[in-house]
Amino acid sequence: MSTEVLLLGLAGILAAAAPIVFATLGETLTERSGVINLSVNGTILLSAMASFAVAVVTGSLLLGFLTGMLVGAVVALVVAGFSISLRQSQVAVGFVLTLMCRDLAYFLGNPFIGLSGPRLPALAVPFLKDLPVLGPLFFRQDLLTYLSFVLILGAWIWIFRTRPGLSLISVGERPAAAYVRGLRVNRMRYLYTIVGGALVGLAGPAFSLSVKAGWKGTISGLDGYGWIALAITIFGGWNPIRAAFGAYLFVFLQWLGLVLQPNLPGVPSQVLQVAPFPLMILALSLVNIGNTEWVERTLAGLPDEVRRSIARVLRALRASPPASLGTPFESE
């Protein structure tokens, strides 16, 4: 494969991963505050359909994208309301919403199946687009992909380098400690869930108005990406940069499947297409296996040197969730 084709492929990966990056960053922010938004899969479908519909009807890409974000924010608001104010199981609410939003998307999107709508154009950055290697890779993308790059860095800086980011971490780790220091825990949880939801909502139009343009109803091929985003959030250790790496890895595996297909005639295409999904989810066992009891007991039985090196590796891989994730906060 020539360098040009390779670079083109990699650039395509960066672009195709943008929706997943948005969803993952959004969920990372939400979970950092201590709330799980399991409705991501349904939200992406619903926001993809809604933004496509609005874009088709109004002809405006901008309105389409804004609609997507609005849908994401509203669904997230519902999740937040149930989780924070009503203290119901976050898994239950998220699960019901994910199914319901998917059905809403199919039902309301029926009239829009197969229509053609506006599509986000590429926007090469002058000067930078002509750099060797970096140019074709990074600077000949569309607006959305550029936004995804900026957001990865922005989210990381926000969480780890700012004062509000420190507050965010404390709210997710030990809300009681945050509360006693005057932080408004539940208000922050609402905020981050809604903002995270808006980012997830951005993933929808990133598909239907760009990467996988159009709305095809039940065969849109968008079902499943929300679950992947959730898995990558865990895999990424609630760290935006590591999560982005997970998103790119996933899309890379998809691309690999496509590229290798002609070389592997014996393997059916379905297998290669779907393989990245379970692979990523099974990769979760890598980051979690250190936590299991049998591993701890087995480690204890090993000679010191072996045990220490293995423990070190496990510790580096380990993804520890924010300690209060999924637990409602009561100020009593």
Binding site: L38, V91, G224, W227, L230, A231, I234, P268, Q270, V271, Q273, V274, A275, F277, P278, M280, I281, L282, L284, S285, N288, I289, G290, N291, T292, W294
Partner: peptide, 24 residues
């Protein structure tokens, strides 16, 4: 139990595999 993978995600991954197997 042995991989430490939450059953939600383990189940999802296996759902995907089942679908692919079926289609194949």
């Amino acid at each position: 139990a042995y991989g430490g993978v939450n059953e939600i995600f383990g189940g999802l991954g296996l759902n995907f595999v089942a679908v692919a197997l079926n289609v194949w």
